[in-house]
């Protein structure tokens, strides 16, 4: 599945459930992968203040976007909470013995509906949904 778009995502280090998240079909994360591994929390920390205090709503370093992209789906196409055992956030944090407190308040599941398989059309749909969040009628 990881090869569905002919791309090996994330420098050959696939997700814990390869082929089951949008991220698996992407060539790169929002910053270079090495940097993201080490510094993702710094991006989030910076973004959180800009968002809450100044109302900046860009997507690049937004936690909601991390979840949208990195969350995996089960065989019924239902999103698995990203902090569930073995899932993208949780897996590493368990290994490094670091609690994730993000998800005591933030949604651990994505904004868009279920996706059975990650295909190029579902990625397109996810992108459109994530990019066009608007409340105007």
């Amino acid at each position: 599945m990881a090869g569905i778009l002919g791309v090996e995502a994330h420098d050959g280090n696939p997700h814990v459930s390869p082929g089951k998240s949008k991220a698996d079909s992407q060539e790169a994360c929002v910053e270079p992968t090495d940097l993201m591994r080490k510094e993702h929390y710094m991006f989030l920390l910076h973004q959180r203040d800009e968002t809450v205090i100044d109302g900046v709503r860009t997507k690049q370093h937004s936690l909601a976007n991390c979840v949208d992209c990195h969350v995996s789906y089960d065989n019924q196409g239902k999103a698995i909470p990203i902090n569930a055992e073995g899932q993208f956030c949780q897996e590493c944090h368990v290994k490094t013995a670091t609690n994730i407190t993000c998800f005591s308040c933030h949604a651990a599941e994505p904004r868009y509906p279920k996706h059975k398989n990650i295909t190029s059309s579902s990625v397109k749909e996810i992108n459109e949904l994530a990019n066009n969040i608007t409340y105007d009628k």
Binding site: G55, A107, P110, I133, Y135, D136
Partner: peptide
């Protein structure tokens, strides 16, 4: 659990009407 993406909230914090700040910032 099961919070809305647009309205993070959790145990131990105070909360109140924020004039739908997420919607407003997205142009509503």
């Amino acid at each position: 659990t099961q919070q809305n993406t647009n309205a993070p909230r959790g145990k131990g914090c105070v909360e109140s009407c924020n004039l739908c700040v997420n919607r407003i910032d997205h142009g509503s």
